[in-house]
Each structure stands twice: as C-alpha cells, then as structure tokens.
C-alpha cells in the first residue's frame, strides 16, 4: 500500500526537480527579458528549501508507515459527533445541511478536506435514509459535491438515496449565499448543520441562524478570524489543521500518512523556534529576517 505511496511522492518530487533542471536557459529577470542565463529565481530559495523539506517529510512518513503502521490519532470530538448528529436528524425526520462557505473554490485544500467529510456524512445519511442539502456559492463545488454524494451513496449500498439529496448552486454573491442558506435553515429546520470549509463574513450569520433554530452545529475552518465566531456559536469546532487531520482520518489508509509528516514538520518548526531564541539570547543574532526572507 504505502510502497506505491512512496513511489507517488518520489515521482512528484522528481517531477518538480526535473522541471527545475530542464528549464531552458533563456530567462527573464525582474519582469523583463534578459540575455543572462538564470534558470532559478534566487529570491525564492527559502521557499524551495521549505517545499523540498515537506516533500522529504511526506516520503519519509510513507516509508515509516510502511514499516511501523499508521500513527495513533487522538479522538476528535467533532468527528465523534457526526454519527450522533445524523442519528438525531433521522429520528426527528429533518434533513442535514452541509455547506463549505463562501471563501473557497474547489482548488482550495480546505474545500477538498471538507469534501472528504461530506463523503462520510453522505454515507451515514444514506445508511439512515436521512435527506441531505448542500447549498454552494460555486457551481463547480456544487457539481463536485453532487458527485461525492453519489459515490458515498453507492458505497453505502443505497444509490437511490442520492436522488433525494440536493447539491445546488445558490448565489455567487457573499450575502446572497448567506441569505439563501439562512432561508434554508429557517424553512427546513435541519437536524444538523455542518459548516466546514473556508468561511468569511458569512460565518457568524450562518452559525447563529443554525443556533437560533435549535440545530446541532459542527463547524471547522482555516480562517483564524472566523474560528473565534465558530467556537462561541457552534456545538463542535474543528480548529484549523484539525479539519485536514479529520479528512485524513476519514479517508483512512494512505491519506493518513500526511498526519505523521505534519507532526514531524511541527517538531522541526519547534526546533527552529528554540534554536532561534537560544541564538538570539546567546549571540544576539536574529534568525527571523533570514527565515522570513
């Protein structure tokens, strides 16, 4: 399993390295054409080093997982609450509402992580025959959600249920979208509302509308500003990277390799922080400007 994963990450790394090496010699420097041979932008060396470190961590984590198995991941309360929320909505005869917020399109990693959670929720909803509504601000996200729901229903052995689920585009405008989702919450009184993805100013409008209708709310976002609103207004919140971890846990198998790699990278950052403080205290040298270059 993970051998193929090591191969995949290694191929990705080679693709990047070969791309850099095979770059033709004609170059642009500072936005204009130049006769000077300069295939690499030296100003971006720190980013290149960081990228290669992350790639190496992913390859290392894949090898480690191959030898020692998947890492232990602590229980995340919002994930544990999903099954209860679906069960409660089914008992009440009310639908589930899942939305990924106005802030992200399908190219955003947060939306991808939210889609993995949607797949899990849709699978559970299909098993319980509980209706699911997915309003979106982006037609592409709505279309991917429709496909995700269909696949989840097929996996749960209930392909017919997918016809009762609604994944639809409502409005591209931020507060048009917020008003549409608010309206759905007020009219349909969903048994559980899932607010997972990239949210902006509409976050609190949606979370409070859900709270005021007495709905159980499970949220998670990568926006540090909106997180504070979710923390006070929602029953369960996936804080920042927990959304990515949740997606990895729900994907299981190969995707969970990233969890170990993220832990290693955090240890590395911690080490850099400690080294930076020691260096500053003992020699007066500041690592900050070099790292922030």
């Amino acid at each position: 399993m993970t051998c193929s994963l090591c191969r995949r990450f290694s191929i990705s790394a080679w693709l990047i390295v070969l791309g850099l090496a095979a770059n033709p010699s004609s170059a642009w420097a500072d936005g204009g054409p130049s006769t000077q041979t300069r295939w690499f932008n030296p100003e971006r060396t720190p980013e290149l080093v960081a990228t290669l470190v992350v790639v190496l961590a992913m390859i290392g984590a894949a090898i480690w997982t191959e030898r020692r198995g998947l890492p232990h991941i602590r229980r995340l309360a919002p994930l544990e609450a999903i099954d209860d929320a679906v069960g409660a909505a089914t008992e009440q005869g009310t639908p589930l509402l899942f939305t990924t917020g106005w802030g992200g399109d399908m190219g955003r990693p947060t939306t991808m992580a939210a889609m993995t959670v949607l797949s899990h929720v849709a699978g559970r909803a299909a098993e319980h025959n509980c209706p699911l509504v997915f309003p979106s601000h982006d037609p592409v996200v709505a279309s991917v959600a429709e496909d995700t729901i269909r696949q989840a229903a097929a996996r749960a052995g209930r392909p017919d249920w997918a016809h009762t689920a609604e994944a639809r585009f409502v409005s591209q405008s931020q507060f048009g979208y917020a008003a549409a989702v608010d309206g759905l919450i007020a009219r349909q009184r969903p048994g559980a509302v899932f607010l997972l993805g990239s949210f902006e100013g509409e976050a609190l409008v949606l979370a409070e509308a859900a709270h005021q209708s007495g709905t159980r709310t499970i949220s998670g976002t990568d926006s540090t500003i909106q997180l504070s609103f979710f923390l006070v207004a929602c029953d369960y919140t996936l804080i920042g990277e927990e959304l990515f971890i949740a997606a990895d846990v729900l994907s299981g198998g190969r995707a969970a390799v990233a969890v170990r790699a993220l832990d290693w990278l955090k240890y590395l950052i911690l080490l850099l922080l400690v080294a930076g403080v020691l260096l500053l205290v003992t020699t007066g040298r500041d690592l900050g400007p070099f790292l922030a270059r």
Partner: peptide
C-alpha cells in the same frame, strides 16, 4: 502545513476529492 500536505497529495494522486 495542512494545506501544503493536501497540495502534495493532489500532485501525488492520493487526494481525489476534487473529482468526487
């Protein structure tokens, strides 16, 4: 870090949620 890891998983073909 979570975002970079997800992006790398897309490049490696492990992450496929963008196509349902």
């Amino acid at each position: 870090l979570g975002m970079v890891a997800t992006a790398l998983k897309v490049i490696a073909g492990v992450e496929r949620t963008y196509m349902g």
